[in-house]
Nucleic acid binder design. Sequence first.
DNA 1: TAGAATGCGGACCCTGGGTCCGCTTCGAAA
DNA 2: TTTCGAAGCGGACCCAGGGTCCGCATTCTA
Lengths: 199, 199
Amino acid sequence: MPDRKPRKDAARNRAAVLAAADTLFTRCDSPDDVTMADVATAAGVGKGTLFRAFGDRTGLIRELYAARLQPIEEAVEAGPPPLGPDTPPRDRVPALLDALLCFKLDNRRLALALEGTGSASPYDAGHYARWHALLRDMLEQLPGLPTAGFTAHALLAAVRADLVEHLAGPEGVPRDTLRAQLAAHTATVLGTSVQGDPA
Amino acid sequence: MPDRKPRKDAARNRAAVLAAADTLFTRCDSPDDVTMADVATAAGVGKGTLFRAFGDRTGLIRELYAARLQPIEEAVEAGPPPLGPDTPPRDRVPALLDALLCFKLDNRRLALALEGTGSASPYDAGHYARWHALLRDMLEQLPGLPTAGFTAHALLAAVRADLVEHLAGPEGVPRDTLRAQLAAHTATVLGTSVQGDPA
DNA sequence: TAGAATGCGGACCCTGGGTCCGCTTCGAAA
DNA sequence: TTTCGAAGCGGACCCAGGGTCCGCATTCTA
């Protein structure tokens, strides 16, 4: 067991930084006008502390993102239908995508910060691999879907933060419209669509 | 007619910069280890010249991208089938997506540079709007596809530069496999798929 | 309560995009 | 061909922001 328990002040500072950063990212217009110095100041902490705790900017953002994502991950892992594991893929796939869409809508700036953070591609983040694997496995259980792996990527691409931002922001598409459109698209891909219904 | 013809040296320098930048972006590992200073040096030109000619980094990249994209745009606008306008949507949609995929494969670094360039979202670039409008119009002519606008976004998202990079690079998916998978996915979305065929 | 280990913080460094301005080059008119 | 204003040049310079460093403070352990 390598790492020992952290000092009390370290834990407190870590929490303070997380809280401050969360607020700043929520309130800002664009994720990159919240600087590391801003976060440090808002948390009442020095830059050194901040970097010691999170390594670099990406590390901080990942941590925030992971914290926000946790409820969904739990719901998927062990929650009730339609997200939980006891759901047939035909229902669970759309539920998962809808959940991800809502997540991006509720955490626009943060998701944008993570996915657009300079050079680090969103595909390197651990959670992407997890969502993709889960989705692929579900798709494989569905009949008539070749290339489940690619399809999973394609579906996830449809809920990427900057696309969502583009639609929900400038284009002004309302939340429920967007959800309906995604649902329709998902249904089309899964072959479960009925006929022209959503907005 | 506002702008007059540029001076000869200006034109020459502009071309030199374009050429140098093109080479650098092609040769580099990651688009953001080619700096503006690098480009200037490689072109045998001062930074001032470079910024005068292109405004900023994004401007330069856009220009490069546009130049590379031109053949495809022409082929789509007035070329022979299956890309040209005299093609039924059922065939033209897959052709367009395939062309875009190949383009990203052939211009990985450049596309990456454009789509991931700091804060500017790829959805603000003019060509995105054009592709989207074209694709939407074609999809609308197809039966049984509600929400053509969203579907168009989703299909374009499936050929985004960083996804393509992720698949073609680290994952090592070969070019033709990727094309086949995209074709299969497109067919699924269009409702023209036959049954499990590609790799 | 002493000592060591851990953590703190903000001055500092460095990279890279973007600006500025005195000098050069161009090209149109004389 | 000479001339002269304008257009363009280039690299020194500026600045923001991410990341580091190290002397000092705090916390844990014996």
